[in-house]
Design a protein around this nucleic acid. Structure first.
Lengths: 204, 204
DNA sequence: CTTTGTAAATGAATGGCATTCATTTAGTGG
DNA sequence: CCACTAAATGAATGCCATTCATTTACAAAG
């Protein structure tokens, strides 16, 4: 009865499970069941559940669009990359705490993404010693913004505290009246453009 | 045997516990033990463990330094606030997923922080409909950067993949040689200054 | 003082979870 | 045909949050 299982199959099954049941439904038991296998069988292929999350993360990194680096303007490439990166991970926020502490050695697709992005920054004229910091700054913003996408629409409703917080209440109301675009998208666009123009100034 | 427990006491005990054992050590059982009480007793005062995390979050919000708003330049106030905010939550990253989805109604101290910051933005000349988006953009960056502080030093070491990723490897090396400051602080400073100057341009 | 009501604490259960391990099964190369 | 190895099994472990029927302590009302 050798080997219906491997890392690719586990990753795929995990993705299907998450799509159907969300991250709460992603248990080792459920994952095993979806593969018609006993839970303990999974441990022949992954060391722990964290390993599964790591496989997922690296797979998702391969979905991020880096194709604009090397063609056209640096600004446009960063824009495309950042929006795509945020969109992918906004569906997978439980992975963010994992990524944040994940050594890139363990994630080849993620490393490949960094390579493409780094080359794009270098070719755009960034001094070498600022490249990693600039990417990290953008990534931090992207991860934070990914959470933002999942927030409930009324998260900023001050409720009964409205009178005590006039400035904030007014600002929230004003945005709501204005808003056609998703609030999370407005904030992301605003911050991203600020980062692009600010970081762009570091080029030699 | 009425009432040795209340929300303030639970919050304080939880903070002490986290300081000593980290967030892995923060279990309802351990929290109860630290208060000399049975685990089930906690449920007379909080609805769930998530409630405890919520109490913690709101307490931490009160530690964020907003004192610079209303005195001096908007830029300086944002800088002080943002660094302080990041420093506080970099010690409490497990709360970030909670905050991200937390309606402000349930967190009075957090709401108070937003009020002060909003007023600072308004007084600095921000159009009302951009205030919330600007704050959200900054907050997203701050939360993402808080994770960054906790990352291991060698997180970007490409290991055996170094030859396959020359641009990235070079950039990582270059930063390491350069660096006296903590890498997370460099990236945060870079991104924050970019956001401050980019968002500052929205003022009327 | 006693009665009555209420808030708070108890301890025993429940169900879910990741993980471990001794054992079995099934192929593969000598 | 045998020996080795990789993979799957199912039963157990230990930790966890949460629930609930029951008891305890106290305070206010008669």
């Amino acid at each position: 009865m050798g080997g219906v299982l491997d890392k690719a199959g586990i990753t795929e099954a995990a993705l299907r499970l998450i799509e159907k049941k969300g991250y709460d439904g992603l248990t080792m038991a459920a994952l095993a069941r979806s593969l018609n296998v006993a839970p303990s069988a999974l441990y022949n292929h992954v060391k722990s559940k964290r390993d599964v999350l790591l496989l997922l993360e690296d797979h998702l990194a391969s979905l991020v669009d880096v194709s604009a680096f090397g063609v056209g303007q640096w600004e446009d490439a960063v824009r495309t990359w950042a929006w795509s990166y945020r969109d992918v991970f906004s569906q997978h926020t439980p992975l963010i705490p994992v990524i944040a502490v994940l050594p890139v050695t363990d994630a080849p697709q993620t490393l490949a993404m960094y390579e493409t992005v780094s080359a794009g920054f270098r070719d755009a004229g960034f001094p070498e010693e600022r490249i990693v910091s600039s990417i990290v700054a953008l990534e931090s913003f992207i991860f934070g913004s990914a959470y933002d996408v999942t927030a409930p629409a009324d998260i900023f409703d001050p409720g009964s505290m409205a009178e005590a917080t006039p400035s904030f209440t007014g600002a929230v109301r004003s945005l709501a009246e204005q808003g056609h675009e998703r609030p999370a998208d407005v904030a992301f666009g605003l911050g991203l453009e600020a980062l692009i123009s600010g970081l762009g100034g570091l080029r030699g």
